[in-house]
Design a binder for these strands. Sequence first.
DNA 1: CCCTCATTTAGAATTATTCTAAATCTTGAC
DNA 2: GTCAAGATTTAGAATAATTCTAAATGAGGG
Lengths: 146, 146
Amino acid sequence: MSVVDTKRPNNDLNQRLGVSGFRFTPQRQRVYDVLWEKRDHPTAEEVFIRAKHRMPDISMATVYNCLDALVKSGLARQVTLERGATRFCPNMEEHCHYYCDTCGEVFDVPFPTESAVMPHPLGFKVDHYDIAVHGLCAACAAQKNS
Amino acid sequence: MSVVDTKRPNNDLNQRLGVSGFRFTPQRQRVYDVLWEKRDHPTAEEVFIRAKHRMPDISMATVYNCLDALVKSGLARQVTLERGATRFCPNMEEHCHYYCDTCGEVFDVPFPTESAVMPHPLGFKVDHYDIAVHGLCAACAAQKNS
DNA sequence: CCCTCATTTAGAATTATTCTAAATCTTGAC
DNA sequence: GTCAAGATTTAGAATAATTCTAAATGAGGG
């Protein structure tokens, strides 16, 4: 736990789950840890593989269950950038995702949504923003020009 | 063609496809028409069902092919709001999607992206923005309070 | 300790999308 | 016009992603 866990909420996972009506379980802890170990927006299957290393009996269904519980408890975000597998992200600060359509890399960029004044449909109650920017990362752009 | 096709690009579909290396076909025309007939962000399967009414022999694989051709030609956008089927949208003006997490309805709201100054990762070449706002629509919000 | 209910698990089932191979169609060269 | 090359369509198979099911386990409250 020495490494990069900047801004990880110090609130007890136990408590955060409890507020949303979920129980704390070792599996949920493990899945949450996996998300923090490498913030590279893994898919459910990638989380499954990584979780298995230290918890070999965990099942795919449990990974989905845990991810859903974390999302519903406000401890992780679902990120749907394109067709195919959904990705997950434990960064709950307001930010947007720069997505390289060529190599698939995702970059988190802090972005305060109040800086953009958007006209809402009448009576719409906003829960959260989901901002993706598609394009070419520097590396892939360089490759294309060569 | 009398109805609501505001802002539909008057450019020839033929030509727009051609520029991207695709051929014009009746199926692509039909799929494009379906998207304009009812701008409710249908899934590929919904497009398939609607397209079939006037073109009974069209197949699912063709619908996917046509949608991909339209997206690659800049005539439609892919919209991935949540897990599950991708939706499609022929509105190419800059706009964001307000999405009701309860009833699934999608509202297009014009939104000039240059109004939000975002810091890009170094060297990133932006292709397009994909902005979703999740929450509760007016109708669903009302229902919850009663 | 017992009851209830949440959770986990493996595997089946479902849904969404992509792939394959054969048939058809278009286009450009001759 | 005829022909070859290559794009497109089609049905169906295959794959990928997710959800469901039913049985087993586990934890908390009385």
